[in-house]
């Protein structure tokens, strides 16, 4: 097991490197450099920009250095000092702007993940064990529609319904009275009470996908000979199903954390924009539109790293759950 963990941790290194490279690429890609955009903006606001200032800025970001040197400066700044660079648009440290929002995104993704599981597990098992029953058809249909509707559509529909029938304009986690307050119990409770709607909206597609995965796996497993063996021992039917096929079909279920996290983060980004939640989504889009590239790149970097860490956790969980992985057993095809 220890060997497995170490190997798995080592696997992460190149992935993390590649993510940072991609994030930096995103920073570098836009045509013209961000400084030009910044200067244009400053001039537009009526500030004159003199050459000395430009040179100072160029110096600070090492814009004339080769790509790899710039990359190194950026990454080492992050790793050593937690310095993600400067947001041009807000004229503040990126790290000041980012962490609060990342925290909320993370909380949202986690709560959504847990809720998706809590719903998908019983529904998926039911749907497989009672295959072709009325309930199974209903679940399958709802699942299909849930998968097919873009998250932001659901958010829009929700926004429209709540506006139309409840006269409320939705938006925001933090109610007005807590907007500027520091984090305390009241604010946490307030956020919780506003959280469930976005959680439901973001979770729909993921839950539908999880149900489908679990149902398909379980249907495969239910036909396997070891299930008959368990029945032949005289176990009650529910114990047969829960102890053997469900346990087996949960392995792929657990490994779905790896891909459901990126989906959740992506869905969160879209939904937050529609519902104007104070998470990464709106700020990320805004920064991309304004070519505020250090801010955008840092968001992509952190979201990517978080997903990789999530995948690592799911792999470790899987190894703990499934002895075949722990013992490096490769299924003979």
């Amino acid at each position: 097991m220890r060997y497995y963990v170490i190997r798995r941790l080592l696997y992460m290194v190149p992935t993390l490197f590649a993510i940072s490279l991609v994030a930096f690429l995103v920073i570098q890609l836009p045509p013209g450099d961000y400084l030009t955009a910044y200067i244009a903006e400053l001039s537009a606001q009526g500030h004159g920009v003199d050459n000395a200032q430009i040179r100072a800025l160029e110096e600070r970001y090492g814009l004339n250095d080769p790509f790899l040197v710039q990359y190194w400066n950026w990454v080492s700044g992050i790793v050593l000092d937690g310095d993600f660079g400067q947001s041009f648009q807000y004229n503040r440290e990126v790290s000041d702007l980012m962490w609060d929002r990342i925290g909320l995104t993370l909380a949202l993704a986690l709560v959504t993940l847990l809720l998706s599981w809590a719903i998908a597990f019983p529904v998926g098992v039911y749907s497989a064990v009672r295959q072709y029953s009325l309930g199974d058809y209903a679940v399958t249909f709802v699942g299909f529609v849930g998968l097919a509707t873009p998250n932001f559509m659901l958010a829009l529909i929700f926004a429209w319904v709540s506006y139309r029938y409840f006269g409320e304009s939705v938006g925001g986690f933090v109610s007005r009275e807590y907007a500027d307050a520091a984090w305390n119990m009241g604010k946490v409770l307030d956020v919780m009470s506003n959280l469930w709607i976005p959680v439901l909206i973001i979770g729909t597609a993921g839950t539908a996908a999880l149900i489908r995965v679990l149902r398909a796996n379980l249907l495969d497993e239910l036909r396997k000979p070891y299930v008959t063996t368990a029945r032949a021992k005289g176990l009650p039917e529910w114990r047969v199903i829960l102890k053997y096929p469900v346990r087996m079909s949960l392995s792929p279920f657990i490994s779905t954390i790896g891909w459901i996290l990126p989906t959740l983060v992506g869905g969160e980004v879209m939904v937050s924009i529609v519902l104007s939640l104070e998470t990464t989504g709106p700020l990320l889009v805004e920064s991309l539109r304004n070519q505020d590239m250090y801010l955008a790149g840092s968001f992509i970097l952190i979201l990517g790293v978080l997903t990789v860490v999530g995948t690592l956790l799911s792999d470790l969980l899987l190894a703990w759950w499934d002895p075949r992985i722990r013992h490096h057993h490769v299924e003979r095809a």
Partner: peptide, 29 residues
Amino acid sequence: PTGKEIRSVRGREVAMVFQEPMASLSLVH
């Protein structure tokens, strides 16, 4: 077929051994 009476026979009075031992055993127990 899933009742209590037949279950008390299965594995106690009448037991079965199946064809493919690998597939007939659970790999995770």
